[in-house]
């Protein structure tokens, strides 16, 4: 019944109401907490990691985890082929994954919002141009596209960010364009025009705040995706170069010893799994709270 919707408690903003819905979702809150723990781990890596992640010690080559025979509790997750502590490398590796995830999403979302607003509000040839570019970029398989770019530019942190953001922006752009097309027809946008507001004012001050919810939701979902892509590139040797620790390259390093030293690949793999899963579940909670239309 519409009755309930018409009687909101006083002094409640939409944002606060949405946040209340989100914090009421226990599973999503737990996952958000896990994501926060990963971020804390990345930021305070030098204090958390028990060892230097790049310190090699050939005496500890492929040393098993602490609870297995031949393991040591001070190297709880064991060591890799160069005797480096896997736990420390996972802690440092979180920096790369999360940094790339955040930067790519920030860059892509900013570009996507501007492009989507321009296409959706200005229409005409601007929309034509942007929509065509979006269609073309969507036509390429993502990973193959990124591999091609990386092969052209060579490996490196900023090259990865560029290669991923190059295509990632089309997703927020499409969302924003669609939302803008709906919002621009609403009377408050027309009211702003009737009052003499400029196009910039209308796009940034009237429309943008109202299309932001779905963008935030999409951005979190895509962040998980970008982290997997970065791991994939690093796994293929096109990502961050050694000796810098990255989860993807750690999984790749362990490939050769899968049978005798399963821990080298497994633990960084689990790190990817946990972080991506946590982000996905948390973002689903966000989606339910902020944008009920998106939930199936």
């Amino acid at each position: 019944m519409s009755l309930a919707a018409e009687t909101p408690a006083a002094s409640e903003t939409i944002l606060r109401r949405n946040l209340a819905t989100f914090t009421g979702n226990r599973l999503a809150m737990l996952c958000a907490l896990i994501v926060v723990l990963f971020v804390v781990m990345a930021v305070f890596a030098p204090w958390i990691a028990p060892h230097d992640p790049n310190e090699t010690d050939l005496f500890r080559r492929l040393q098993p985890p602490g609870w297995m025979a031949g393991g040591e509790w001070s190297y709880v997750l064991g060591c890799d082929a160069l005797g480096r502590d896997i736990l420390s490398r996972i802690v440092y590796g979180a920096r790369i994954s999360i940094f790339i995830g955040i930067v790519v999403i920030l860059v892509a979302t900013t570009i996507g919002i501007l492009a989507g607003l321009a296409a959706g509000y200005l229409r005409g040839w601007v929309d034509m141009l942007i929509s065509r570019i979006v269609d073309i970029l969507l036509g390429f398989p993502y990973l193959i596209f990124a591999i091609g770019l990386m092969a052209m530019m060579g490996p490196g942190l900023w090259n990865i960010i560029f290669a991923l953001a190059y295509k990632e922006w089309v997703i927020p752009a499409r969302v924003v364009r669609g939302e803008t097309l709906v919002t621009r027809e609403l009377e408050y946008v027309e009211a702003a025009r009737a009052l003499g507001a400029s196009r910039g004012h209308i796009m940034l001050r009237e429309i943008l705040p109202n299309v932001l919810s779905p963008v935030i939701v999409v951005a979190t979902i895509r962040m998980a995706h970008v982290i997997i892509l970065e791991a994939s590139l690093s796994f293929l040797g096109l990502g961050v170069q050694p000796p810098t620790a990255s989860w993807g390259s750690m999984v790749a390093d362990g490939r050769a010893f899968m049978l005798e030293a399963w821990w080298v690949s497994t633990f960084p793999g689990l790190a990817i799994l946990f972080l991506v899963l946590a982000i996905n579940v948390a973002s689903q909670g966000l989606r339910d709270a902020f944008d009920p239309r998106f939930s199936e």
């Binding site: 939409i14 609403l186 009377e187 408050y188 027309e190 009211a191 702003a192 003499g196 705040p209 109202n210």
Partner: peptide, 28 residues
């Protein structure tokens, strides 16, 4: 000026009354 039909669609849900009503003063 214009006054609209739909009292729900004609006000930006993310702005306070002061911002909505004060907009013309700012613009001009």
């Amino acid at each position: 000026q214009i006054i609209f039909q739909d009292p729900y669609a004609c006000l930006n849900p993310r702005r306070t009354v002061a911002e909505i009503v004060g907009l013309p003063l700012k613009l001009h």
